[in-house]
Design a protein around this nucleic acid. Sequence first.
DNA 1: TCCTTTGTATTACTCCGACATATTCATTTG
DNA 2: CAAATGAATATGTCGGAGTAATACAAAGGA
Lengths: 275, 275
Amino acid sequence: MLKVVRKDGGGEVQSMSDSMTNGDAPPESPVDAAPEQTAPKAKRGTGRRLHGAIAHKLGAAIVSGEYRPGDTLSGEVAFSEALDVSRSAYREAVQVLSAKGLVESRPKTGTRVLPRNRWNLLDPDVLAWAFSGEPDIHFVRSLFELRAIVEPAAARLAAERRDKADLKEMRDALAAMRRHTLATEAGRTADREFHNAVLAATRNDALVVLTASIGAAVAWTTQFKQRSRALPRNPVPDHVKVYDAIAAGDVEAAGEAMRLLVDLALEDTRSAMEG
Amino acid sequence: MLKVVRKDGGGEVQSMSDSMTNGDAPPESPVDAAPEQTAPKAKRGTGRRLHGAIAHKLGAAIVSGEYRPGDTLSGEVAFSEALDVSRSAYREAVQVLSAKGLVESRPKTGTRVLPRNRWNLLDPDVLAWAFSGEPDIHFVRSLFELRAIVEPAAARLAAERRDKADLKEMRDALAAMRRHTLATEAGRTADREFHNAVLAATRNDALVVLTASIGAAVAWTTQFKQRSRALPRNPVPDHVKVYDAIAAGDVEAAGEAMRLLVDLALEDTRSAMEG
DNA sequence: TCCTTTGTATTACTCCGACATATTCATTTG
DNA sequence: CAAATGAATATGTCGGAGTAATACAAAGGA
């Protein structure tokens, strides 16, 4: 009856402060050479709750294709023991995955991975999991295509409906973008804030939520893009064009300027990924 | 000290991830023969697992505004006792809500409702909850606006990329729409299948997922629309126009025909809700 | 022979009670 | 008066016991 005193004091203490983007990309070797006992602990740092960490782990494994649709996970007891956590924690993690449409559990049959078209691919967490590994290039193209559809239309609506407060938010974000560059986290945040301000000006909740998701995903790729090469283009002037058109209430120009912006971003990302 | 008799719900089974067509529109009251005293609690009406029922209940209460953003729910023990369920079941329900961005729990502070812009409004379940009460007319307008943006663009892509199999699916759906009317469930299903076929032809996963969500929501309103008045218009010819354009590979015509279709649907729904 | 019905084994589902951990808030100390 | 310290409290995690639902196989009837 192994008692598993999950008292971290034992051996090596794992990273405490990963918390953010890391993910557990480095996949442990499938061969567990278990020195003493079950090797693949790989638990959580502080911050994420345990079931959150498990959900992240499983979710990433599913979206990355490690488990295929139709596969059935080993039973609750077996899996929770393998992960060295209690059944409660494992179950709560599965509830999360189930809520996002990744899996479905039923008595007698167990928990099985649902087909891809049932997944909530636009859920922020699912997107994060999808981008924690190496992102599927085809899927990234889909996202940019969607963005290219939605954002120009949003800019048109914003040009019709914006008020002074909206414009001020955009100006502030632009100023922040000028100060920091896109290479810094602050700069990327300012970029997101600008787009969020545009979205908020549409007075359309569905649009806001949708593009919040897409924006998060785009942020991953932006970071990805940065990693590969310092991007040459200065994005601020293009953003200013969008702002000017929205401020002037010029619907057509706003849509067109935003379309250009998205196209350039796509171009940068594509060259960064393929080249 | 009444002790959990939670005896009801003998009836139909089949839980699945609801989220789809079923809805809870025709809720209960088959025979059911309430055993003596189910009166006050009457938690799980039907089928769903217990935590799913709780999530539905809480989720609907939150999106309907019964709990406001910033409010903190009573503690786990208190709430689970009030609902007459175990703490585990309640916790799993909260995990679901947390996964959909409706609430956030932290030690000591409790579980509090997140601001609206954190909600995954495009999650199928959240949409179902939003439409389980009387839908917010402003939000419905947002959805139709989004649909009016996305679907014509999707039709344009479909006109470029469709293959024979896609066209056959559309034809089959159209035939089914002709046989049954929109007044029947089979007819509405055929309608959804047509739109799904168009979406699938875009070869864009993000678009498929998004419009699956929107389509489900639109299905609610369609049903709603039916309830209020038999709609006069025959929708088939408009759908045929879309099909013809896609089959011909005419990008512009496809987008325009779909735009018309969405506008008409919006018009019908608006008159049904306001009139 | 085929279909229906029944039985059974397996699995998730629910419950319970205890302990661990994290975070807030009041208190104490420099 | 401010920073460190301690206690209080609610969520987080645990393990085990018992219930309910369902796939699958076997037995029975047409």
